[in-house]
């Protein structure tokens, strides 16, 4: 496309048309390219939520890092949580670049997290009371994350697509680490199998919720639809959930575990899984900061932010010299 010097003289509508033509042609948008304000805001919302979820996501597993039941497992879970922090860092940098023209920084992201304005993923508000939970998180939550993130590998925003490429590669290792924990427990003592089943029971509804509600009607939120138009994402929440079922339900059953939903079955006619939907009012409550661990985990971050204020000041003073 030859726009060149005259681009700045185009009207807003022409710029928008040019932008849509580019993303429809599969071109990648880069940070310094012109983009509609709405696209920028959608990206900031999505990527800062994703980034902060990676960071908050390390906290449910934090308890199990030192408690992991062998040296091998300790090393593996340490590597995993370190990756998650790395994902958070990578994504926040992408978000920061998008926020810069608006005069916002990482400090604003943290403040928005603390005030509850910036939400994080529902799964990271939940309890993880046993080692079985650590296994289910790594196997199924990371497994779900792979499905939803792989869909955005071809995102129209170049820096996000590139970050996701690296993230997805690492997520595969996380899911393998989780599967290995699950297999050891499934083949272990009756107590271990029970611990595993209890953890699955605890996490099932959260996993249904992970992909978000079925359609805009239920929440009055059309961000997902908008993101499809902008080619930030390509599939609906329900597409992803069905993909997750198809991949994991047979594996869960083959381990001899029971899914805590006696209505769940694959419908040959519609080629869809029939299942008991989650309680979406509960979902709303959870992501608004009223989940069982929401405030505890936010407290950890708030407290460290406050306790380390003197460190940030000291670093800023060094930079100023």
């Amino acid at each position: 496309m030859t726009v060149g010097v005259s681009f700045n003289q185009l009207s807003e509508e022409e710029k928008m048309q040019h932008f849509l033509d580019r993303i429809n042609a599969g071109e990648k948008i880069e940070p310094d390219d012109w983009m509609p304000e709405d696209y920028r805001l959608q990206l900031i919302r999505l990527i800062s939520m994703h980034g902060i979820s990676e960071i908050m996501g390390a906290l449910p597993e934090k308890e199990w890092v030192p408690k992991a039941p062998s040296l091998h497992r300790k090393l593996a879970i340490m590597a995993k949580v370190q990756d998650e922090m790395g994902h958070g860092q990578l994504l926040l940098r992408v978000a920061e670049d998008l926020m810069a023209p608006l005069g916002k920084t990482r400090h604003d992201i943290m403040e928005d997290l603390f005030s509850g304005k910036l939400k994080f993923h529902n799964v990271f508000h939940m309890d993880a009371p046993t080692w079985g939970d650590a296994g289910i998180i790594a196997w199924l939550v990371d497994g779900a994350a792979i499905i939803s993130q792989s869909m955005m590998l071809d995102s129209s925003y170049g820096p996000y697509a590139r970050a996701l490429k690296r993230i997805c590669a690492e997520e595969v290792f996380h899911a393998q680490h989780g599967e290995s924990i699950i297999l050891a427990m499934a083949e272990g003592s009756p107590e271990q199998r029970q611990m595993l089943q209890d953890a699955l029971n605890r996490w099932w509804e959260s996993l249904i919720m992970f992909f978000g509600p079925k359609s805009a009607k239920e929440t009055g939120n059309s961000n997902a639809d908008k993101n499809i138009m902008y080619k930030i994402r390509t599939k609906t929440n329900e597409d992803l959930r069905q993909e997750f079922f198809t991949k994991y339900i047979p594996r869960i059953w083959s381990l001899g575990l029971t899914i805590p939903d006696d209505t769940i079955r694959f419908d040959e006619e519609t080629q869809m899984w029939i299942y008991k939907d989650a309680d979406w009012s509960k979902f709303k409550q959870i992501v608004s900061g009223n989940g069982p661990q929401s405030q505890n985990r936010l407290d950890l971050r708030r407290r460290s932010y406050k306790n380390n204020e003197w460190v940030r000041e000291a670093l800023a003073a060094k930079k100023a010299i």
């Binding site: 030192p66 090393l75 926040l92």
Partner: peptide, 29 residues
Amino acid sequence: GSEWLGLAPHIEEDVAFSSISQDMMGHAN
């Protein structure tokens, strides 16, 4: 070191510190 996870002064340090703790666990091993 692993107790510090999520509590370091900034996210970059969380990444670096958890990497160091992991290495040290490897050395103990």
